[in-house]
Design a protein around this nucleic acid. Sequence first.
DNA 1: GATCTCTATGTAAACGGTTACATCTCGTTA
DNA 2: TAACGAGATGTAACCGTTTACATAGAGATC
Lengths: 349, 349
Amino acid sequence: MTTIKDVAREAGVSTATVSRVFNNVGPVDAETERKVRLVARRLKYVPNALGRGLSTRRTDAIGLLLPDLFGEFFSEVLRGSDQTAQQAHYHLVVSSSHNNREEIRAALTMMRGRVDGLVIMSPHIDAETLNENLPQSLPVVLLNCYVESSGFDSLNIDNYGGAHAMTEHLLSHGHASLAIIKGTEGNFDARERLRGWADAVRDAGITPDDRYQVPGNFSEASGYEAAQRLLALTPRPTAIFACNDSMAIGALSALRDAEVQVPREVAIAGFDDVPIASYLTPALTSVQVGIHNLGVKAIETALHAVRNKNAHKKQQIVFPTSLVLRESCGCNISSLTNHQRQSIVPEGR
Amino acid sequence: MTTIKDVAREAGVSTATVSRVFNNVGPVDAETERKVRLVARRLKYVPNALGRGLSTRRTDAIGLLLPDLFGEFFSEVLRGSDQTAQQAHYHLVVSSSHNNREEIRAALTMMRGRVDGLVIMSPHIDAETLNENLPQSLPVVLLNCYVESSGFDSLNIDNYGGAHAMTEHLLSHGHASLAIIKGTEGNFDARERLRGWADAVRDAGITPDDRYQVPGNFSEASGYEAAQRLLALTPRPTAIFACNDSMAIGALSALRDAEVQVPREVAIAGFDDVPIASYLTPALTSVQVGIHNLGVKAIETALHAVRNKNAHKKQQIVFPTSLVLRESCGCNISSLTNHQRQSIVPEGR
DNA sequence: GATCTCTATGTAAACGGTTACATCTCGTTA
DNA sequence: TAACGAGATGTAACCGTTTACATAGAGATC
């Protein structure tokens, strides 16, 4: 592997000059530059990222800590993140499947020194763990984490508002017995969505029935199971709000297997508005959160922090949500094609 | 940020000893070790990855180059990769959305020096580009790339076999007019699947109709459009083989909008067997490729190469596929629940 | 022609580790 | 008791860059 020294020797200049050429910094004679570039190309020289990083204390990489790479949600977050990072000529170091505090801690220390900034998406994180395991100077962006500290930039989805609005919408269809398929126990999103649902139900003058609140874990399988459980109840609920689209998909599948018509007999709505939602049968009504944008914004925030050496004012941003009404909730728009269906969004809340 | 020198000074030993302690190498007195670890913990010392990497010429990271992070397929590959890398205490540097040769070239050089090995999944790669832009010593695993050289480890899906088998299966349902929704132009997978389909059709004594081979690009939207185009034909095909599940999902959606019964009027099958396939309406018959395993195996191969300093014998592995028969192809198993449905696989081909 | 600027370049010290080699101290053996 | 071997530790070179500082030469200014 050729180093800067090889290039310097071959071009008859010092390493400093080669460095200047490759970083476009300081004055370099045009002729010298030409010569250096020529030699570099001939020797296939590429500056070593480690050496450079050690010297500059920059890595040109952003770390991305995710809870579990499952389904379309994370795929979309990642896509947005990757695009944004790449545009800024940054790398993405991805680490996932951290399902408890100890694993997170390990991942955090592993990341130290490898990245210039960190985007963390994990329900199992708290300010103390962060402060314990990360240098103060490392920019951190919390994505959908419930951390009370205002010492970090954070991005959150308006879980409460979205769930509340969707529940109101289902109520507007005349449903009186609303059920919810809850998200993973202890998860912040799950809790907030449940709260939004419960408040909306109560606001409508209905007392939430405990039996109508069945557990789930954000997977299709759990949605399937939850729906089966709901169908066994008497009286059977006439509308189901699933705390994410994956579970809604599972639920749809269970209802079909039980030969229950959706939305005629039971209406369904999800959360996230994953890309395939509009292609389902029936097309899934969902709460749109702009997942892709979430990834984009997270990286942008991290990069901003990196550029300001983390001395900027930290922001807590809440991402607004909007309802995307399709068929599964009972909106009578079955004559539209999918493409049109995708754009039907109720006026702003 | 505390360095090894700080720890050494504070513990009253040399940096060499501290290094020995943290790498479990060479003899160190138990008492000394205790003291060093204590000081290290107190100072919150974490070895710097860059310094270490520069010295050892290892980065403990594997690069993953993907064409486009879209949908469930890549999400699954990534999940398998990440799990495997993490178990081996390696990091994953992900880079995606490389849709032409120049972008690939740029990504390859960016990765140089940052990773110990590289997993490349890209239709736009060739042996020359690889040899030009990568040092001979860097382990490379090609995932689903069409590269004629045997100088690299490679993993390929049995695209031809899978498509052939699925087409045969559709034919066994008595369909005489089979259509195909093709994958992205120029894509290796797409080409092989088309070839498998065409051969199976011909083997059945049918001459493939050009109008029944409509273009697609592996996205839901393109599947939707392609199906619409097929429905407009007379005679209308009675079975459609979509070159991946995303397009099959789009097609299903189009057929429903056109009020065409699946599988009664038109049968459909996909390729990939993404996780949600079994939750669709009707449940999607697909060619299973074990996407998750693909990621696992790719990283395992890369790690093996890293450990052997890339001096091992390169392997070209073809991943077998299997059919997963559900409802959309017309198999009469509608009385089963989803869970059972998932496990119905025909005897080995 | 001395002084001052400005440009172009070189020198060498970091950056944070690892590791070959040297050194020192003991306990063991002939 | 001298020689030896093994264990514990230190010394310093090295990995590939960047960059503060030094230096040299060429015009420009007085």
